Amino acid sequence: MGTLPKCLMSFSKNLSVLNLRINKIQGVIPRKFAKDNKLRTIDFSQNRFEGTLPRSLLHCENLEVVDLGNNRMKDTFPDWLGTLPKLQVLVLRSNMFHGFVSSPREARSFSELHIFDLSNNNLSGPLPVSYIMKLTTMMYQDKRQGKLQYMGDGNYQDSVMVTMKGLEIRLVKILTVFTSIDLSSNHFGGELPMYIGNLKSLKGLNFSHNNLTGYIPLSIGNLTELEWLDLSSNKFIGSIPQELADLTSLAFLNLSENQLIRPIPRGRQFNTFKSDLFAMNPRLCGFPLPETCTNNPQEIPLVTILQENDTGHGSWFEWRAILMGYGCGTVGGVSLGYIVLGSKKFEWLTGLLEKKGANVRKKWRRNACRSYQI
């Protein structure tokens, strides 16, 4: 209860862990952290702190864990924390952080992060792809065998609250191989980039309850360590990639409340998921939903063509030509002719076709006159 005394920060020069979790502390976080301090962990979660983050946190160059979850902080995204060279856990969940997430200030911003949690705030604008793509620690799988290691030291091991597989769970110990991103319950928009598939050591990904659009990228099939994925309550379109069904570690998936279409892929993991995890996609069908699929399985859907284009293997001209040839032969021929005629390289062909068309029209008129005279 009460406020945090300012004098406590002067002791931070000798502290390595400052854990004040669940104490109903209110007011602002003191503005001054001592220079050259030894703080490794700051856990102020589940209190009533308000106001903004003090910039003097940059004096804490040894910080590995910052947990300010479940408070009343009202600030913009503290991108300047990305300059802390050892930061592995950043939890700002359930506060009142707001506004756009601006571009990273440093080339290696947040590069050491294992847990990145901005969930349940008022952040808006495009999905912060530029930050996600700098999470280099999540890009490499640790193939070393041996004793499990946890964050912390011999005297204190860190813990953190995470939303895992749809449930809030406190990890009393944090494995060094544990990695997760949770940007759920904000107002982020835009599309998931193909580069999301580079985060190959990622265990959990939660982008639910935002305004994300476009297709689920095929590259998500590269996340072979992924154990839970929540993309529910967005505006994703197209079909569910088969690559998702091939992820053998995926134990939880929620794609409900989107605009997904066509049959749900079949696979070992997908066969265990309940129907409510796919619900409220009006044009989605197949097991475990009660709606059966009536489309011809041999038919190549338009969304598949568009998704293949999304992988970047074809040029604009190539996929546009495919799309224009998708309908009946006559429409396809006219459309393809339009593309060719629009090119300066084939101006000679334009004249040839026009001349041929004029001859056909003359012949048709002559035949019509003869028929009339007869």
Rank of each mutant, 00 (worst) to 15 (best):
N70S: 11
M133W: 02
L175C: 07
G238N: 09
G2K: 12
F44D: 00
M1E: 05
D246N: 14
K235W: 03
Q145N: 07
G99L: 01
F100S: 10
F188N: 00
D182M: 01
V129T: 14
F44P: 00
R170S: 04
V101G: 00
A245Q: 03
D153C: 03
V334W: 07
C328D: 14
S315W: 12
G197M: 05
R320E: 15
T176A: 10
N367W: 12
G357P: 13
K274E: 15
Y372G: 04
F49H: 11
F252M: 08
L183Q: 00
K13Q: 12
P301S: 08
N155P: 00
K24C: 04
L90Q: 11
D153A: 04
E191Y: 13
L123S: 00
N234C: 04
Q26Y: 12
F207R: 08
Q242S: 14
R266H: 14
S102W: 07
M1H: 10
N121Q: 00
P263E: 07
K35S: 11
L199E: 06
L284Q: 10
M164S: 15
K355I: 10
N122G: 01
L183V: 01
P193N: 03
Q46D: 14
S232T: 09
V177D: 12
S201P: 07
S249K: 13
G125V: 04
S16D: 11
M164A: 06
L175K: 06
Y140A: 11
P217W: 06
M324W: 10
M324G: 08
L118C: 00
D79N: 12
T76Q: 06
R72F: 01
G189F: 09
G189I: 06
T294K: 12
C285S: 02
F252L: 04
P263T: 08
T3Y: 08
K355C: 04
L123G: 00
L323A: 08
S12K: 01
F110P: 02
D79Y: 09
W316T: 08
T76W: 03
S275N: 10
S233E: 02
E50C: 03
S159E: 04
T163L: 15
T272P: 00
L302S: 10
I220R: 12
E257V: 13
E225C: 11
L127T: 11
W316M: 14
Y156T: 08
Y195R: 14
Q145Y: 04
K274W: 02
M161K: 03
K143I: 05
N70F: 09
L323I: 10
Q145W: 07
P193S: 02
N234K: 06
F236M: 15
V101K: 00
G197C: 04
M73D: 00
W364I: 10
V162H: 03
D276T: 09
L302F: 11
R370Y: 11
H114D: 03
G286H: 09
S233P: 00
E299P: 01
L247C: 07
Y372V: 08
